[in-house]
Structure formats: C-alpha cells, structure tokens
Amino acid sequence: MSDRVDAIVTIKEQTDILHARSAGREVARQLGFGTVDQTRLATAISEMARNALNYGKGGTCTIVTEKGQDGRLTIRVLVEDHGPGIADVALALKPGFSSGGGLGQGLPAVRRLMDHLEIDSQPGRTTVVATMSRRP
C-alpha cells in the first residue's frame, strides 16, 4: 500500500487544533491503534498544531498513513507553517526552552510521544514531521 492522505486540516484558529487532534485520533482508531496510542498521537498533534498557530501564524496539518511491506502500519503527521522559523532546532528540543514564554515542553513532548520526529526550519517555512508505527 502506498502512502494515503487521510486528513488535511488548515490551522487558522484554536478550534482547528481540536479538528486536527480529532482527525488524528480517528485515523489511529480506524487503523486499530489502541486508546493509549490514540491519545499519544492526539496530544502530539495538539502540540504541533498549537506551535504552527502561535509561532507560525497558522499552517496545515496533514495526516498520512502507509502500510509497509512487513505489514507495519505508520501514521505520519506533517505540520507546516510559513512563520519566522525556529532559530535553533536543537535548543527548541530541550525541555524547558521556550521562545514564547511557555513551559518549553511542546516539541520535547512530541519527541517523547512519537516514534520519530524531524524538523526542518528556516525563515518562511517550518515543517515538523512525526511518525507513529505499529505492527498489525
């Protein structure tokens, strides 16, 4: 099975964070992920979408699924914004660091909750990709 786009949510206001979170939870449920993994995914999506809204002035959340040749099911969440970018990605991934006066737990939490996290950031475009996989 090739990659399949399951949901695209435009992030323009706070309620869009809830829509993205719900979409991720529903995709995970449909794929047979347990409630704990559904909650982990929804929490990670909330953090990623909130960052796009608060720091990137909005963006998009795309949820893609794939089934590997080994039967592994993967959910990939891609959140992209066109804000100022993250000046120091390594620093942003350290617990307690915040460029906006928060607790500094957002991106470190996403890294803990998901199986893999990649961040590509430069002024005008930040892309955060997080994946979660499970065997059937």
Results as ranks from 00 to 15, higher is better:
Gly32Cys: 08
Thr65Phe: 00
Ile11Arg: 00
Ile63Cys: 02
Gln38Ala: 13
Thr74Phe: 13
Tyr55Ala: 12
Ala87Glu: 12
Ala23Tyr: 00
Tyr55Trp: 13
Ile17Asp: 00
Phe33Glu: 00
Thr43Pro: 10
Pro95Phe: 10
Ile45Pro: 03
Ile8His: 12
Val77Ile: 15
Thr65Tyr: 01
Asp120Ala: 13
Met114Ile: 07
Gln105Phe: 09
Gly104Glu: 02
Gly32Trp: 06
Pro95Lys: 09
Ala87Asp: 10
Leu117His: 03
Asp115Gln: 05
Ser121Asp: 00
Val64Tyr: 04
Gly102Ala: 08
Ser98Ala: 01
Ala87Leu: 15
Arg50Ala: 11
Ser46Met: 14
Asp88Leu: 08
Val89Phe: 05
Arg112Tyr: 10
Leu117Gln: 01
Leu41Asp: 01
Thr43Gln: 11
Val9Pro: 03
Leu53Met: 11
Thr62Tyr: 02
Asp37Val: 07
Tyr55Asp: 08
Ala49Leu: 01
Gly59Arg: 01
Lys94Phe: 06
Ala44Thr: 02
Leu41Ala: 06
Leu93Asn: 00
Ala87Tyr: 15
Ala90Glu: 14
Pro84Ser: 15
Glu66Arg: 15
Asp81Trp: 01
Asp81Ala: 07
Ala109Trp: 06
Leu78Asn: 10
Glu118Gln: 09
Leu31Cys: 06
Thr62Gly: 00
Ser121Val: 05
Ile45Gln: 01
Glu66Ser: 11
His19Val: 09
Ala109Pro: 07
Ala87Asn: 12
Gly96Cys: 08
Asp120Pro: 03
Val77Arg: 07
Thr15Trp: 07
Pro84Met: 10
Leu103Glu: 09
His19Ala: 14
Pro108Phe: 06
Thr43Asp: 12
Ala23Thr: 04
Ser99Asp: 13
Ala87His: 13
Pro123Ile: 06
Leu117Ile: 10
Ala92Cys: 09
Gly104Val: 04
Asp115Ile: 05
Arg40Leu: 10
Asn54His: 12
Val64Asp: 04
Gly71Leu: 02
Thr35Gly: 09
Val9Glu: 04
Glu13Cys: 02
Asp88Phe: 12
Tyr55Lys: 08
Gly24Gln: 02
Asn54Pro: 13
Ala92Glu: 04
Asn54Leu: 10
Val77Met: 05
Val110Met: 05
Arg25Gln: 14
Leu31Gln: 02
Ala49Gly: 02
Leu93Phe: 04
Lys57Asn: 14
Thr62Pro: 00
Gly83Ala: 06
Ile11Asp: 00
Gly102Val: 05
Ala20Ser: 07
Val77Lys: 05
Val89Ser: 00
Gly100Ala: 14
Glu13Trp: 02
Asn51Asp: 10
Arg50Thr: 15
Ala90Lys: 11
Glu47Val: 06
Leu113Lys: 02
Ala7Met: 07
Gly68Gln: 10
Asp37Lys: 11
Val36Gln: 12
Gly58Ile: 00
Ala87Gln: 14
Gly24Trp: 04
Glu26Ser: 15
Arg50Tyr: 12
Ile86Met: 06
Glu66Val: 12
Ile63Ser: 02
Asp88Gly: 08
